[in-house]
Write a protein that binds this DNA or RNA. Structure first.
Lengths: 231, 231
DNA sequence: GTACCTTTGTGAAGCTATGCACAAAGTGCG
DNA sequence: CGCACTTTGTGCATAGCTTCACAAAGGTAC
């Protein structure tokens, strides 16, 4: 009975599906045929009731008294995420980060194919990476079109990111993964996900500070605004 | 009246503070003295009521009828996040990603300092990056100790990540930023944040597929399990 | 000082997500 | 076949987050 199937899997659930998929692939490698929600939940690091509820949004793919068939569940999650088809990804900005992304094995293994690389620096254009020549940013629209790119990764400096976004959106792209530390302004219907390296560190620093404060018993640093401004 | 001040800023709020900080720094560069919650919310891409409630968790730092003093708010958020102190960060794994992280300017500019680099490959050890020699992983514990490292970034292959985590935790580290695509098992009191590049792409693919399905009017791909297994 | 304008800070309502706890459904053994 | 055991799928209570809407507070002009 999956009336929840059509129209709307919760975002929180969608965000966890890749996690389950990874755990399942690990089990598959060790030739495990079936797995209980309890065991899979441990492998994925979540609560088992949550895992069952997440999976129930996709349909009723388990067998009571037995668990889930690993291969079958891998297939169902992959299909739901759209990984049974091939996605052509373009990376804009071939600096340190762009190179790391192009070389990252996790992309290819999950149905994503790096189909184009772009940079504004003529010194980089023409260079070959993972069997792919870097194109000049001027070619952006035409290459996106001819190679059927549907997802763009922005790995440019912050100053160039909005401009790149505007251009790829004009070229018909509606899914962007943004590594540049800026808030992109995009029209409705365009999905942007952002990964911000320094944000994550800042969140860690917050918790680390909390731990330190608790240990020393000091309430919160008592330094005043005026004192800090003197420095 | 900020009784919410002591004990517990919501996680969702903490996760947004770096975003506000970035928007504020943008305003400060353009010499803006004060900003309303409405304008700052637009710059950060959030709802203004949410922004006000987030800031109210830190204290009552605005002026009714005027808005927030940009410099003062930057200071308060920085202090709350623990960025007024200097954090020594170690990066383990100097592959493509590790290099990108070491070179990433956003770290240094926010109170984070790359204090150590480690790799298991003797060919990489000794190499200099951002004025810092790469140490061998055997030195992990001693270097963490002598250089006062308090946050560790794991940028190793998946297979090495848990082992690295175990070792740094044994060395006293309680904050880890993990780029390896594995679920790390850690004791209570240790904070792990993870950044998974392929997870983000998978979430985008999900939404992209939804959009494509809606356009063509097709319900959901009708391919069956048996058909897919033939391929 | 008063009247008017702007903008904050927050109570309250609504929405989403989490986790417990259990009935329903399946397996397997004697 | 029936009984004991396992494990799913989900109703329900709770917790947390978001958004609205507005009173309270401060600024400015005259």
């Amino acid at each position: 009975m999956s009336q929840a199937r059509e129209r709307g899997i919760p975002d929180a659930t969608v965000a966890r599906l890749p996690l389950y998929l990874r755990a399942l692939n690990g089990l598959a490698e060790r030739a495990t045929a079936t797995v209980s929600s309890e065991d899979l939940a441990v492998a994925a690091g979540v609560n088992s009731a949550k895992l069952r509820k997440d999976l129930s949004h996709l349909g009723s793919y388990g067998t009571r008294g037995v668990g889930y068939d690993v291969q079958y569940l891998i297939y169902q999650i992959s299909r739901e995420l759209g990984l049974t088809q091939d996605w052509a990804v373009a990376i804009v900005g071939v600096g340190n980060l762009g190179r790391a992304l192009a070389n990252y094995g996790g992309f290819v293994s999950r149905g994503f194919r790096v189909a184009a690389l772009f940079d504004a620096d003529k010194g980089v254009v023409g260079e070959r990476l993972v069997g792919m020549a870097v194109d000049h940013i001027d070619e952006l629209e035409s290459v996106i079109d001819t190679r059927g790119v549907s997802i763009v990764v922005i790995a440019t400096p912050a100053t160039a990111a909005q401009q790149v976004a505007d251009r790829v959106i004009a070229a018909g792209i509606t899914s962007i993964l943004n590594f540049a530390p800026v808030v992109l302004t995009v029209p409705d219907g365009v999905d942007v996900r952002k990964v911000d390296l320094s944000t994550e560190l800042q969140i860690l620093a917050f918790h680390e500070q909390r731990k330190a404060d608790r240990e020393t018993g000091s309430p919160i640093m008592a330094e005043t605004w005026a004192e800090a401004m003197d420095a």
